[in-house]
Design a protein around this nucleic acid. Structure first.
Lengths: 106, 106
DNA sequence: AACTTGCGAAACCGAAAAGTTGCATATATA
DNA sequence: TATATATGCAACTTTTCGGTTTCGCAAGTT
């Protein structure tokens, strides 16, 4: 079962879970209350998120708190950065064109 | 068929295609030569990428050139920015802690 | 000790996805 | 005009995915 971050964030429910636990750790039951699915379905999503290390768990008595492993999100940012370079370059080029036009008008 | 950008980039082959055509437009055949799959499989991926507007096509005679719609990548960047805020805040907090320790040592 | 609660895991199911094969179409070329 | 090439599309198969149901276990509660 080769899980990677990109596959993990492909599912909208999982992205919603990520958003939920980004700021505070939550138990599976608490998370499930925010959705129309069962606790077990959420539990499955949490397993996938844990497997690809996007989420970490912390046991407290019989409750398990899940929270976001924010460092792992940087992996996506890292992948995206190569494309960010492209669109920033294009923006600069466009900017140059625009200022050239401006100069010619003067 | 609910296609979104996140589902599109979930597949490793599609990410590879994106990387290939990011800098120069390519035909399906040329793209397929870089992979171990058939042309049809690549064609299917291209259709998915086109459907979610990550890729645009340009017909030239009997060839169709595919290229990356870089603007659409910003959608991912946009989603990621909420989490970037979090890790930047944490970094600043860590930075503050470190400089406090530094001051105490002096 | 009996009951309740919070949870994960396995089994199962239907839907969607990914890949292959085959065919149709349009554009070149001989 | 006949043939080769570039491509999309539809049908079919296998695999994966998301969800539900059921079960078992551990930790609190009464």
């Amino acid at each position: 079962m080769r899980r990677d971050v990109f596959q993990a964030i492909a599912d909208p429910t999982r992205r919603a879970i990520i958003a939920l636990i980004a700021l505070q750790a939550m138990t599976p039951n608490a998370i499930a209350e925010n959705f129309n699915t069962t606790r077990q379905a959420v539990s499955k999503h949490l397993r996938i998120l844990t497997e690809c290390e996007l989420v970490k768990q912390e046991q407290q008595g019989r409750e398990i708190y899940y929270s976001l492993e924010i460092e792992k999100m940087k992996e996506i940012d890292n992948w995206l950065s190569q494309y960010r370079k492209i669109w920033e370059t294009r923006f600069k080029q466009l900017d140059n064109v625009l200022s050239t036009i401006k100069k010619q008008k003067k």
